[in-house]
Design a protein around this nucleic acid. Structure first.
Length: 610
RNA sequence: CGGGAUGUAGCGCAGCUUGGUAGCGCACUUCGUUCGGGACGAAGGGGCCGCAGGUUCGAAUCCUGUCAUCCCGACCA
């Protein structure tokens, strides 16, 4: 390809719309243009990158025996209603774009494809003899994100590879899950990305085991916690750790303490010399469901611990009444909400675990009793400080036995705290958790039988009876991966693509486009490279050398061949983009010099993972 | 959804306080000189100042509304 024909439009200034470096570079390098918030055009240069990523994905997926398919993006609401996800995905802060057709039938634009694929499986898969099967597609997904940001990182329309496997038993599912784990490691390595596999929450998709693949980068939206021995890595949403021991409170009985205006743990402790680990804080929250009544929550945590919302949401989901439908939101109870329910004001900041359900008695729409949950670290305290349920007053030396004498008041003990960097590890207490930021580029799940049961996808087993299929699902954010690669591979001059996903492998630059000797030699080398199977670009523009060098650096072509003053003597220059390593050599020696290095780079980081 | 900011040429911005009909840099076109790290000179082209109302003799500028985009938040009272 010739640069003059490439529709290469580069920008000198950072566009105001971009915040992070990868987003700026993709815009400046002429890779993407924003069409609307979270919606981007993939320009020809980026499309080449995406196709190279897709090729690697296909190659590795096919190698595991998976079958490529293409499923509809426009999906009937009925399918989603049968799986129970329609309300959760469309109401509240649901992420599914949806619409009505001319007959008034509701449809959704697929944010994911479990419903469609499971329906197909129910239709096609009848016998254990057909199993296991793994189907995948590379498809545009639609998600109405609360807040799209960072270019392709969190878009409302993006390209994803998603795969769905079907099995006769759990062991077979485990096998494919393992094979996908290995395939994913190879895919990211071949793309030249440093990625780590972490334990993850399975989120809205549901299911049991799940693992995320994170590209480590400062701009990552996720916090990941790892042990330095490499044996533990988890998303903070899911991470577990050993809490620091509490400092025992010297008290044998319960007394009341006046605490004017001391609503926060911090204010309370600094005014009276308590350690936060000697206190129990109580959070009053409201869980809203798609169909069921709003459920007030009373959550007790040790004062020095942080609530993990994801763990809480999972706990609430597991305890919701069967007809409640999807959990839409958990948010702090506000004074306005209490008023709206016709309830008396509550002493926020001075609430203890003993708060009676009587305060909810006359609620108009809420369930008139709290769901009482507590983190294990709070329940372990013998004596502690907590709110007295009266303004400007706390209890010192309270105990669970005194406060909550009846089983009715006693909270259920769970793991609800967030693990923090520096915490001791569960697998080995001498190890500490370290924090890193990561961009989630892949996620694999063992779904089990959740969808197959809901959508009645069954097969006939060896014994002749019907049972639901076992399922797994496996995603890779293809467009996000492209930007994550830029985030991980750039310098002050621009992008430094790994060869495997670069739009071109080599760019040939005649320094002076008016010099016939230079242009002729450049043309010859360009032809020779292409005949050798190299993905080459020729900068045939009549620009000054500086402009061509700057553009080559910005768009990040891994190798540059400069044909300049040495052309009459047959001397050229070979420059490696990464590190800007340059060597001068005979034009006739180009292929011999370049090909071994290029061949090696075409493996990505694979050799490290072999 | 809450808070903050910004909408002026393809991109980056000034002008707005104190109303008088639009400017700078880059990019684009032509010519000349230059030619190995975003050249220089000259001459050009391009804007319903986001949109809609209002105030005024007159609005990019003041007022009201609306739309869009970006950032922070929507966990610990």
């Amino acid at each position: 390809m010739r640069v003059s024909r490439l529709l290469l439009v580069t920008l000198r200034d950072d566009p105001a719309e971009a915040e992070i470096v990868s987003h700026k570079l993709l815009l400046r390098g002429g890779y993407i243009r924003r069409i609307s918030s979270g919606i981007y055009a993939y320009l020809p240069l980026l499309w080449r990158v995406l196709q190279k990523i897709e090729h690697i994905v296909r190659d590795e997926m096919n190698a595991t025996g998976a079958l490529e398919t293409l499923l509809p993006q426009l999906q009937p609401a009925e399918l989603w209603q049968r799986s129970g996800r329609w309300d959760g995905y469309t109401a509240g802060e649901g992420i599914m774009f949806h619409l009505d057709d001319r007959q008034g039938r509701a449809l959704g634009l697929g944010p994911t494809h479990e419903e469609v694929i499971t329906t197909l499986a129910a239709d096609l898969l009848r016998s254990y003899r057909q199993l296991p099967v793994n189907l995948y597609q590379i498809q545009t997904k639609f998600r109405d994100e609360i807040r799209p940001r960072f270019g392709l990182m969190r878009g409302r329309e993006f390209i994803m590879k998603d795969a769905y496997s079907f099995h006769a038993d759990e062991a077979s599912l485990g096998q494919t899950y393992g094979a996908m784990d290995q395939a994913y490691r190879r895919i990211f390595a071949r793309c030249g990305l440093r990625a780590v596999a972490v334990e993850a929450d399975s989120g809205a998709i549901g299911g049991s085991a799940s693992q995320e693949f994170m590209v480590t980068a400062e701009a990552g939206e996720d916090l990941i916690l790892t042990s330095s021995d490499g044996r533990y890595a988890a998303n903070q949403e899911r991470a577990v750790s050993l809490p620091s021991p509490a400092i025992p409170l010297q008290a044998s009985s319960c007394t009341e303490l006046t605490t004017p205006g001391q609503r926060s743990i911090e204010a309370l402790c600094s005014a009276h010399g308590f350690d936060p680990s000697q206190t129990v804080k109580v959070l009053l929250l409201l869980a809203r469901f798609a169909t069921g009544q709003p459920q007030p929550l009373l959550v007790s945590l040790r004062g020095d611990q942080q609530l993990n919302e994801v763990k809480l949401a999972n706990a609430v989901n597991g305890r919701a009444e069967s007809g409640a439908g999807a959990l839409l939101e958990i948010a702090p109870i506000t004074p306005e909400q209490l008023q709206g329910e016709g309830l008396a004001a509550l002493p926020f900041g001075f609430v203890g675990p003993q708060l009676s359900d009587a305060v909810l008695e006359s609620a108009r729409t809420w369930t008139p009793r709290f769901l009482r949950l507590a983190d294990a670290t709070a329940l372990e305290l013998e004596r502690f400080v907590c709110g007295a349920c009266r303004p400007d007053s706390h209890l010192v030396g309270a105990s669970w036995g005194d406060l909550c004498p009846t089983a009715f008041l006693r909270p259920t003990g769970l793991d609800l705290r967030s693990a923090q960097p520096g915490d001791r590890c569960v697998h080995e207490p001498t190890q500490r958790l370290e924090a890193a930021r990561g961009i989630e580029v892949g996620h694999i799940f063992q779904l089990g039988r959740k969808y197959s049961q809901a959508l009645e996808a069954t097969f006939t087993n060896e014994a002749g009876s019907d049972e639901p299929l076992w399922m797994g699902c496996y995603g890779i954010g293809v467009s996000r991966l492209a930007q994550a690669a830029v985030e991980q591979h750039h310098d002050s001059q621009g992008i430094c693509w790994p060869v495997t996903i670069a739009p071109f492998e080599v760019i040939v630059v005649p320094a002076n486009g008016d010099d016939p000797q230079q242009t002729q030699l450049a043309e010859e080398l360009y032809d020779a490279l292409r005949q050798a199977g190299v993905d080459a670009l020729l900068d045939d523009r009549s620009e000054r050398a500086g402009v061509k060098f700057k553009d080559a650096d910005l768009i990040g072509i891994p190798w540059r061949v400069v044909v300049g003053r040495g052309a009459p003597q047959g001397r050229i220059e070979l420059v490696r983009r990464r590190g800007t390593v340059s060597q001068e050599l005979e034009a006739s020696a180009l292929l011999n010099s370049l090909m071994p290095a290029l061949q090696n780079e075409r493996l990505g980081l694979l050799e490290q993972h072999a």
